[in-house]
Design a protein around this nucleic acid. Structure first.
Lengths: 203, 203
DNA sequence: GTCTATAGCTGGATAGAC
DNA sequence: GTCTATCCAGCTATAGAC
């Protein structure tokens, strides 16, 4: 399960092509003809495998969400879960795809439902690990509930990435320093060798 | 200058129609024919006034940014700038439009440039007022730089709104309480009568 | 499972009448 | 400034051959 999936069959090849087009040019550019052209296949195959364009988007989202789940599984096993969560949230490639689906989901009910389900699952997964960690650090759960820490870290990380994509960096360095200072106070320095986001799959 | 602009001429009517379609169905649904149909005008007029679809989107963004600027002007004159900024950031109608343009800008250079310029202008505007306010509250500017406070508040507010649009509310109440508790500690209770976001235009 | 062919529609954009 | 008419391209989706 590599980060950049390699097509093993026509269905995967179509999903790979759709994902690439979506990231490069946005969901509106994902059309049956362009998917097929990029994958070197016939456009009728899109309907054979996914029935409709909505079906394709949902299949694409689920495949991505499964990968994301596996990455969270790894990250949350880290002995420094705060660092792990923060670094994962700061990962651009993951967030770019999520934001494209959010834009799509804002106007398509079927996608919106998929997104909501996945968002809740990931939140709970993070909350369980984080609540235990914060407790072990002696953090008052009334002052800093784990679910709030997730919302705050996610919101900050995502906003930083959005602005970076537009080459806007006002206050970014200060904010990263501020957040990472808080994490360091609880978990010490980042131990880059384990639980990292980068080394996700073996060569 | 009302929040929901009334068309005074064909050009404004086209922009109004484009904005409504964009909010309801996303930027991809904004087409010359649909704009014209909604405005009760001819689709060729879109090209007469805006040359291309990119031209239309840029004109639409600029008109909205001008309104936003005026709203920030009002909000930042408040005697409780932290409350003013937070309430403005939490305003859904404003953010929905911004996010649609971000999705569009992620894949169109001309839009991206417009967005970056406006984002920087708004940030500086907020930072000036906030830096002075935080200083008057005795907040250490090295621990909490104004530009970081802007990034943090904006990131949190926007993430809350994104999730609310998908009916996901995990950790939201706790996070709002946490943020507003911090603001209250500096500025006291919210004084709803002045500088509010709601009462923007007469009539 | 993959292809060709095509129906039926909608898109951006332009020319030119009024 | 607003309209009709039109070009050509692209779209989703289906039918049916292989």
């Amino acid at each position: 399960m590599a980060l950049v999936p390699k097509a093993t069959g026509a269905r995967d090849a179509l999903l790979d092509a759709a994902e690439a087009i979506m990231l490069e040019e946005g969901y509106a550019a994902v059309t049956t003809r362009r998917i097929a052209g990029r994958a070197g296949l016939n456009s009728a195959l899109v309907f054979y495998y996914f029935d409709t364009m909505d079906g394709l988007f949902i299949a694409l989202f689920r495949r991505g969400a499964q990968e994301t789940q596996q990455r969270w599984d790894r990250v949350l096993r880290s002995s420094q879960p705060l660092w792990g969560i923060w670094d994962m949230l700061r990962d651009e490639s993951h967030t770019a795809r999520t934001m494209e689906f959010i834009a799509l989901g804002n106007h398509r009910k079927a996608i919106r439902t998929e997104l909501a389900t996945a968002a809740k699952r990931f939140h709970q997964m993070q909350r369980k690990v984080l609540a235990r960690a914060l407790e072990s650090y002696g953090v008052d759960p009334d002052a800093w509930p784990a679910s709030s820490v997730i919302v705050i870290l996610t919101g900050i990380a995502r906003y930083l990435l959005i602005e970076e994509a537009f080459d806007v960096h006002l206050g970014h360095a200060e904010t990263v320093a501020l957040v990472e200072g808080q994490i360091r106070a609880l978990e010490g320095d980042r131990q880059p060798a384990e639980g990292g986001v980068v080394a996700a799959a073996p060569g």
